[in-house]
């Protein structure tokens, strides 16, 4: 077992265990902080796959942006003294059964398929190649995403600030 495998199992365990805690914790603030560990583990998996730029973006956007946004959402919509959330009780058993069947099916498909493995040589840093692709093949997507982000920003700000009549 190489050091690569060891690090992979470390990050995979971190990701899966903290994701399990996110969905099973009773406290919404605790869920948010377990989500931080999940995002961090996923970012480590990206590094193991040779995607350094995606890993850094994951940390900056997810942990620095989305998680903070979610925490603000928690603070603005719950009383700090009473952060216990309503748990789904009646639907848990059917959900566990259904998700279990789905997970089993997906995992069995993933493990039994003979994937055509073609281990490519990953460049030392991917950001140069990614940037080149972004302004050549994907320039339209790039521009559209910029406009979409602007629309989302303006829409979110105007929706959240609307005063009650």
């Amino acid at each position: 077992m190489s050091i690569y495998d060891l690090i992979f199992y470390l990050f995979a365990t971190l990701t899966i265990v903290s994701a399990l805690m996110v969905v099973s914790s009773d406290n919404i603030v605790r869920s948010a902080f377990y989500l931080l560990a999940t995002f961090f583990g996923v970012s480590g998996i990206y590094v193991l796959l040779g995607a350094d730029f995606v890993a850094v973006t994951q940390i900056m956007v997810y942990i620095g942006g989305i998680l903070i946004l979610l925490l603000f959402g928690v603070m603005l919509t719950s009383n700090i003294t009473n952060v216990e959330i309503k748990k789904g009780t009646a639907k848990i058993l059917p959900a566990v059964i259904g998700i279990g069947i789905l997970l089993g099916a997906v995992v069995s498909v993933m493990t039994r398929t003979k994937w055509k493995i073609h281990l490519t040589e990953i460049p030392q840093t991917t950001s140069f190649e990614l940037g080149k692709l972004l302004i050549t093949d994907y320039v339209l997507v790039f521009e559209l995403l910029g406009i979409l982000l602007l629309i989302a920003l303006i829409g979110a700000a105007s929706m959240a600030r609307r005063e009650q009549e």
Binding site: L130, L133, G155
Partner: peptide, 28 residues
């Protein structure tokens, strides 16, 4: 990483991250 399509997959992951950020802002 495991196929020979270059970095296109990583670029798609970046686009998904951008969409997730927009989605989180609107949803909040």
């Amino acid at each position: 990483r495991y196929s020979n399509y270059g970095l296109n997959g990583q670029l798609m992951a970046l686009f998904v991250i951008v969409l997730a950020a927009a989605e989180a802002a609107i949803a909040l």
